[in-house]
Design a protein around this nucleic acid. Structure first.
Length: 459
DNA sequence: TGTTCATGG
DNA sequence: TATCCATGAACA
């Protein structure tokens, strides 16, 4: 795969982007080394306790007995062999190569309580590894990760040594422990500015689907809420009760569908993740809480009593989604795939060309993923320019695909926020005529001298 | 070196 | 029809 700039603008974006990124690398992010070392020691003791607990279980003793060599608790291969070959349990989930899966979802469906400590130990080990990376890579209390612009096939960025683009966020305990290590410079505060719905908005610009554009332009409308109503057969969307179902619709159906997944997979994932479905049929009291009831009770009341029924239901919704709701998006996908097959390349609106062998889904997803990131890169460069021209004491320190992280002097906070908002929402749209929908940002701010774990939404 | 499992967008 | 992109650790 080669990716060629087809315009001077595309060339300068990468050239200036590399320079702006290098300044952020040089600046670095402050890390509390003492906290990291204390926490690492604490986590090691905790992991050891959990492992001892697991070793005292019947399951482990039998596992050890069945093995000629000493069992390695960290080996998923040995665990899969014991569960699926020795004990002959039928795997609930297979890996891409067709072997029995030992990930958390697959193992929890086996309903073996003795395996629970294993998940816990794995989680704390994961946290330990993040902190260990911080202490390994820090220099005089600062991290200087590498920002790469030349490694990713879809032309996004990546980061390494350490990678700060995958610091835990969704699990609140992992989030708190990991992000409590990262600080602004003394007297400063951390500010994160996100493009809201970056890839959806860019997809609307590229496909020009009028329904998708309408969803973005009309602030009263809400695509994910509409899909939640349809998927879960709600009478209407009630913000106070159904936020979690909106999230399920968004992350369990809308995004996977946009990326090329299909109803069967979406149904299984939603049933497991939100419905907590161990077998084929729901029983009362299962799944996430919605208002004063549970998802299983709600689905049963709507006649969606089994995974089979839910899957059939989702098949109809998928058909409606692509043939009715977003039919222009569908037509774009067909045209786009045919054009790639005919000409052997695809271009992005910014002026990059993807050459090389691609599957259908790659031809659909790469230009969206690339252009969404290029909006971020353009904004990063422009904020960096203003920052240097006006001699800010604040510094851009990082970036996560669709967000920018700034180490801000509190006296400059209002100006920095206004400048970033103006560049990301107004200047960007003026500069790139292909952006035909409004762009919006969300900001999160930490207190002065507070860690990255303390971030709060800014209104 | 390839596979699997975690984390993020 | 069969989820896109990454980094990193651990194992066999």
């Amino acid at each position: 795969m080669s990716t060629n700039p087809r315009s001077y603008e595309a060339f300068t974006l990468i050239h200036e982007g590399a320079l702006a990124f290098s300044r952020a690398e040089l600046q670095g992010i402050r890390v509390d080394v003492e906290y990291v070392e204390n926490k690492k020691a604490h986590l090691l003791r905790k992991i050891e306790r959990i492992r001892e607990q697991f070793k005292s279980t019947d399951l482990f003793k039998k596992w050890q007995k069945s093995s000629e060599t000493e069992v390695n608790i960290d080996s998923h291969v040995q665990l899969a062999n014991y569960l699926y070959s020795v004990k002959k349990i039928k795997p609930k989930k297979l890996t891409p190569t067709g072997r029995g899966s030992t990930d958390e979802e697959a193992l929890s469906q086996l309903n073996i309580p003795e395996l629970l400590p294993l998940f816990e130990a794995k989680k704390y080990k994961k946290i330990y590894d993040f902190l260990d990376g911080f202490s390994r890579e820090q220099v005089n209390g600062y991290l200087h990760p590498f920002f790469n612009l030349h490694t990713v096939v879809s032309f996004r960025s990546s980061m390494d040594s350490p990678n700060l683009q995958n610091i835990p966020k969704r699990d609140s305990e992992m989030m708190t422990i990991c992000r409590s290590a990262l600080y602004p410079r003394p007297g400063h505060q951390l500010l994160e500015i996100d493009f809201s719905g970056a890839e959806v908005r860019v997809a609307a610009c590229i496909t020009k689907d009028s329904k998708l554009i309408e969803y973005i332009k009309n602030p009263e409308s809400d695509m994910h809420a509409d899909m939640a109503v349809q998927i879960f057969k709600l009478d209407s969307y009630d913000k106070t009760k159904y936020k979690v179902l909106r999230q399920a619709a968004k992350n369990g159906f809308v995004f996977p569908e946009f990326y090329g997944d299909y109803f069967g997979n979406c149904a299984v994932n939603m049933a497991c993740t939100w419905g907590k479905l161990p077998q084929g049929k729901w029983k009362e009291g299962q799944g996430i809480e919605i208002g004063d009831t549970f998802l299983a009770d709600h689905l049963i009341s709507k006649g969606l009593i089994s995974l089979k029924k839910f899957t059939d239901h989702l098949e109809k919704i998928e058909h409606d989604f692509w043939f009715n709701r977003f039919s222009e998006y569908s037509q774009w996908k067909d045209r786009w795939w045919r054009a790639y097959q005919k000409y052997g390349y695809i271009d992005t609106p910014v002026g990059f060309r993807f050459n090389g062998l691609m599957g259908r889904k790659e031809t659909w997803n790469y230009p969206v993923q690339a252009s969404a990131f290029h909006c971020l890169l353009w904004s990063f460069i422009e904020i960096d320019k203003v920052m240097r021209k006006e001699n800010w004491d604040s510094r851009i320190i990082s970036q996560i695909h669709d967000s920018i992280i700034i180490d801000v002097n509190p006296e400059e906070l209002d100006h920095v926020m206004a400048t970033a908002r103006d560049i990301m929402c107004n200047k960007l749209v003026e500069a790139w005529k292909w952006i035909i929908v409004p762009i919006d940002v969300e900001m999160e701010l930490c207190g002065v001298d507070k860690s990255w774990a303390e971030k709060q939404k800014v209104n």
